[in-house]
Design a protein around this nucleic acid. Sequence first.
DNA 1: AGATTATAGATGCAATTGCATCAAGCTTGA
DNA 2: TCAAGCTTGATGCAATTGCATCTATAATCT
Lengths: 152, 152
Amino acid sequence: MTKTAMPSPEAIKVWARLMRVSRQLIEQGEEALKDSGLPPLAWYDVLHELAEAGEGGLRPFQLTERTLFAQYNISRLLARLEADGLVEKLKVADDGRGQTIRISAKGRETRRRMWAVYGRSITELVGHKLSADELSTVSALLGRLRLPPAMD
Amino acid sequence: MTKTAMPSPEAIKVWARLMRVSRQLIEQGEEALKDSGLPPLAWYDVLHELAEAGEGGLRPFQLTERTLFAQYNISRLLARLEADGLVEKLKVADDGRGQTIRISAKGRETRRRMWAVYGRSITELVGHKLSADELSTVSALLGRLRLPPAMD
DNA sequence: AGATTATAGATGCAATTGCATCAAGCTTGA
DNA sequence: TCAAGCTTGATGCAATTGCATCTATAATCT
């Protein structure tokens, strides 16, 4: 059993700023989307993953892993997305429990419109605040905080 | 009217990692607190601000500003904290609408115990992953993403 | 095979959040 | 001074989240 020490002042500062900046980013993103009459960020996250996955789609449990949303949250979010016609649920052949989720044309379109709005927030709150070099530095260091660490 | 361009790939990467890392940090913090039978992170944030404010306490609207929680959220959170005896609501002399919130001894003790648990998560997820220099670099750059920017 | 354990996804119920709005007290300005 | 408007904080109601648990199917073990 190894003792875990309390965080250094430097670590605390990183944590505090990480919390504050991410909260801002979320808040302003949600606000911008709402002002444009678009769905909340959580929908974007899922549509984004599904769009990247392409025609093959993804299983709900894969979405759970990638987005870090809880299982029951994904389950209900997908129900709402399906009700809105943004995704389709397909039976999967080799596993009777499972299903595959595929983004629909309407889903892609919604995602595109959300990105147009949300991307602007990112530019304002992130892109315009730091140089390209600084952005690379931050993302490299944040990559090492990720679980699992990003290796680029 | 100035056009806002879409974010560069570097900005997107920073945003994506920021979101992921902060989500992890929150999730693991919440989990650690729950496992120890302690209240959720939101309580910590408020107790922390109140502890820093000292005997003078803070007005609810000041908490709203500092924590970035919505006004109605603070209102109800304070009701729960008061019900648990962690804070006291005091009438404020010069403004009949307002109140001052002051942390109680029990509140300080709860905060202390939460920090013992939460701090460990921060050490594991942040402190142990980067050197002191790297931590300083990240916090300086994140400071510039803050609104308003931190000036240190 | 049959029993046991694990995994995928859904869901009832309680707690929390978001939204809209309210009540009460301040402030301003004609 | 008093009407109009602003600020502080609370709250009813709907939507979402968290928790625990459930059903169904797969995988493993004897």
